[in-house]
Design a protein around this nucleic acid. Structure first.
Length: 289
DNA sequence: CATGCTGACTTTGAATTGTG
DNA sequence: CACAATTCAAAGTCAGCATG
């Protein structure tokens, strides 16, 4: 991972903390490897342009766009054209707001559940977001009395803004374009296919045949777009489904393994433990995260 | 750009044995 | 009985290098 060209980097708190903000300006190409986590993420691109892969498609993100990524959603940003860009990333946990702020008339988390992950803002809205970001930065830097409350309130303000913005945009769809690169579109199709068929036996070769491309090419393009290898992605999808079923149902582990696409329990257990650190049974008994 | 080959590496499945 | 761990060979994947 290249680190050159960073001009501003403000980090507050470790990854595990409830709230985390990072403002970075880059001149050199930079790829943050694919990942997913239990925190909500707000990505604000101040200028430049990026490709952002989220869940099953690539977005062409421009300066002034706000991106909302739900917990556990797979995402990865990468270069498109000019590598220079400036961006703010905010991560926070559910409890951060929920534990101290109850707003009965609005659901602040709704922006994370929208159909489109990217919100394109007009200049006026961008100014508003900029000012909230500035205030957040200042609070985090100066840490004056009550700064933690101030951060919560500012985050709530940002989210409330997004909720309203989403409502307005509902009328006139300010659609964010599908990614221009045909390879990205193709891989989006493949990912959607995987999301629909993970419970069946799948291998690269048949998948490639399904989409009329060579397995070699598919393997490479898939990695380039999603940041995951084919197997990594497929396993991730299956494990997450299994986790869901373990949490939400009381079906037997064997059935769940089957439903998630593992036709071999031994292999399922092994893979599950590697991915989550727990055996399926232990995971079910824990029931947090 | 799309593809093919190769060899190192990882994943998978069946059988078996262990645990509560 | 339901689940977990281990072992081992076969099957599958993937990065690097090569090609039209």
């Amino acid at each position: 991972m290249q680190e050159g060209g960073e001009l501003i980097k403000l980090d507050y708190g470790a990854e595990e903390e409830a709230f985390h903000m990072n403002h970075t300006k880059r001149l050199q190409p930079f790829e943050r490897g694919n990942h997913y986590h239990g925190t909500y993420e707000i990505y604000y691109l101040l200028n430049g342009q990026r490709t952002y892969f989220i869940r099953d498609r690539s977005y062409h993100v421009l300066g002034g766009d706000l991106v909302f990524i739900n917990r556990h959603e797979v995402h990865k940003s990468s270069v498109i054209g000019d590598p220079r860009h400036e961006r703010i990333v905010i991560n926070f946990r559910e409890e951060f707001l929920a534990s101290s702020l109850t707003l009965p008339d609005v659901d602040l988390m709704s922006p994370f559940r929208q159909k489109s992950h990217v919100m394109r803002l007009n200049l006026r809205s961008q100014m508003l977001v900029n000012s909230v970001m500035d205030k957040l930065t200042r609070e985090l830097q100066e840490r004056r009395t009550g700064w933690q409350s101030a951060v919560k309130l500012l985050l709530a303000e940002l989210l409330l803004f997004a909720v309203r913005q989403a409502e307005e945009a509902d009328g006139q769809p300010a659609r964010v374009d599908e990614h221009p690169d045909p390879v990205h579109r193709k891989i989006s199709e493949v990912v959607r296919y995987l999301h629909a068929h993970y419970s069946e036996p799948l291998k690269l070769e048949t998948l490639a045949a399904e989409f009329y491309i060579s397995p070699y090419y598919l393997s490479r393009c898939f990695k380039k777009v999603t940041g995951f290898t084919f197997i990594e992605f497929l396993t991730l999808t299956r494990i997450r489904e299994a986790q869901l079923l373990l949490r939400r149902t009381d079906r037997k582990v064997i059935d769940i393994a089957q439903a998630a696409g593992f036709d071999n329990i031994a292999h399922f257990g092994r893979t599950f433990k590697k991915a989550t650190g727990l055996t399926p049974g232990a995971y079910r008994r824990q029931k947090d995260s």
